[in-house]
């Protein structure tokens, strides 16, 4: 589903990604962990071309990301959820969700609204359709943001620390939506510090440090028996 070969990314002279190789299969849930500044977000953002890779190859759903032509086509297939929600504040929850289907997929309004309401129901916010984001809690906003990404019917979902900006009591409601998605077979790449989530639904854990993949494996293997000393050091700090 996603194939990454020797991915390098520089910001000016700073090399943030130093040769990433990985293959993410269909329906796989890959959890990316690693210390701050290790390049997790940058890696994720390369997968939908929010960042332009400096070198290397990325293929998403059979489409090589190198050609500029189909950037928007790729982005339609790859949903992204951000740490700070990034809902559109001038639109209601439902309007947030139906905007892209309408203007990008040219779905007619009635159908977009119907799908939008179904998605709101799915994330438990059916009755919040007409609320503006500033009237919603962080957890509710993030669930709307997930529904918004899902409205484009993506084949892959990217989550960049989707629960990090939330008050502790709201983390659970967002994680449970993400777990549902994983169970339904969505291909997911999830950057998170939630190790419980990683264990429960992760098929694979990738530990990144200093722009490379230091270690990867099944969640239990990585968490119980980390081989790389850096992984050990990182895990001992957060577990």
């Amino acid at each position: 589903m996603i194939l990454v070969k020797d991915l390098h990314k520089y910001f000016g002279k700073l090399e943030v990604l130093k040769g990433i190789n990985c293959h993410i299969k269909e329906k796989e849930v890959v959890v990316v962990i690693g210390p701050s500044g290790s390049g997790k977000s940058t890696f994720l953002r390369c997968l939908n071309k929010l960042e332009e890779p400096t070198r290397g190859e990325i293929t998403v759903d059979g489409i090589p990301l190198n050609s500029d032509v189909n950037v928007n086509a790729i982005r339609r297939e790859v949903g992204m959820v951000f740490q700070r929600f990034n809902l559109f504040p001038h639109m209601t929850a439902l309007e947030n969700i139906i905007l892209a289907p309408e203007v990008v997929r040219k779905t007619n309004k009635a159908e977009a609204r119907k799908n939008g309401m179904e998605l709101l129901a799915k994330v438990g916010l059916y009755d919040k359709a007409d609320e503006y984001p500033d009237r919603l809690s962080g957890g509710q906003q993030q669930r709307v943001a997930i529904a918004r990404a899902l409205a484009m019917k993506p084949k892959i979902m990217l989550f960049d620390e989707a629960t990090s900006a939330l008050d502790p009591e709201m983390v659970g409601e967002v994680l449970s939506v993400m777990k549902d998605l994983a169970r339904e077979g969505m291909t997911m790449v999830v950057v998170t510090h939630e190790m419980g989530f990683a264990r429960e639904v992760g098929d694979r854990v990738i530990f990144m440090d200093e722009g490379i993949i230091m270690e990867e494996g099944k969640p239990n293997e990585v968490f119980e028996n980390p081989k790389n000393p850096r992984t050990q050091a990182f895990l001992s700090k957060i577990l």
């Binding site: 929010l50 982005r75 339609r76 790859v78 992204m80 203007v103 943001a145 918004r148 990404a149 484009m152």
Partner: peptide, 16 residues
């Protein structure tokens, strides 16, 4: 910036 990024990540063009 997150607003543009959210819009772009949904497949909108720069103009949209």
């Amino acid at each position: 910036r997150g607003q543009t990024e959210a819009a772009r990540s949904l497949g909108m063009t720069q103009a949209q």
